[in-house]
């Protein structure tokens, strides 16, 4: 299958690969997909008190398009507010990377990963607010 230059670029030079401390209350972790389906994305966002995404890291098990989609998303969401990041649509990812129809699910997964990471962050914040605290997301299982 021929890949677009942008997919190849992200695949060969993935941006923001890594892991943030999942116990950090400022960090939201989203893990979406399943090994049986051939794609698992882990996206972590570090969110400041002002609700702006300060840092983003990812790790992905999946094909080149899945790796490129997650790499691209980490670039995009850095500096965005949570609200803006929630507006990132899979269609924009697919368009930017010129994904063929059979690879659209990779962009859907990347969108889901943002939502899952933010949901995890918000759940943590709520627990903190409620004074429960203590348990951060453990980075496993999807956000829904």
């Amino acid at each position: 299958m021929p890949y677009s230059d942008k997919v190849i670029d992200h695949y060969e030079n993935p941006r923001n690969v890594g892991t943030l401390d999942p116990e950090d209350p400022q960090v939201g972790t989203g893990m979406v997909g399943a090994p049986a389906c051939g794609d698992v994305m882990k996206l972590q966002l570090k969110i400041g008190a002002d609700g702006v995404i300060e840092d983003a890291k990812f790790k992905t098990f999946g094909c080149g398009s899945a790796i490129a989609s997650s790499s691209l998303v980490t670039e995009w969401v850095k500096g965005m507010s949570i609200e803006k990041a929630l507006e990132v649509k899979n269609s924009a990812i697919a368009e930017e990377l010129s994904l063929p129809p059979v690879k659209i699910h990779c962009s859907v997964l990347a969108e889901d990963a943002i939502k899952a990471a933010i949901a995890d962050y918000r759940a943590k914040q709520q627990r903190q607010g409620a004074g429960g605290g203590g348990h951060g997301g453990n980075g496993t299982a999807g956000g829904k």
Partner: peptide
């Protein structure tokens, strides 16, 4: 690059995780 490798190295049993199926 693989989150699965990272988890396996941390001793997480991948079989016990409830994966999301979008």
């Amino acid at each position: 690059l693989s989150p699965l490798w990272e988890m396996a190295q941390q001793g997480v049993d991948l079989k016990k995780i409830e994966w999301s199926h979008p």
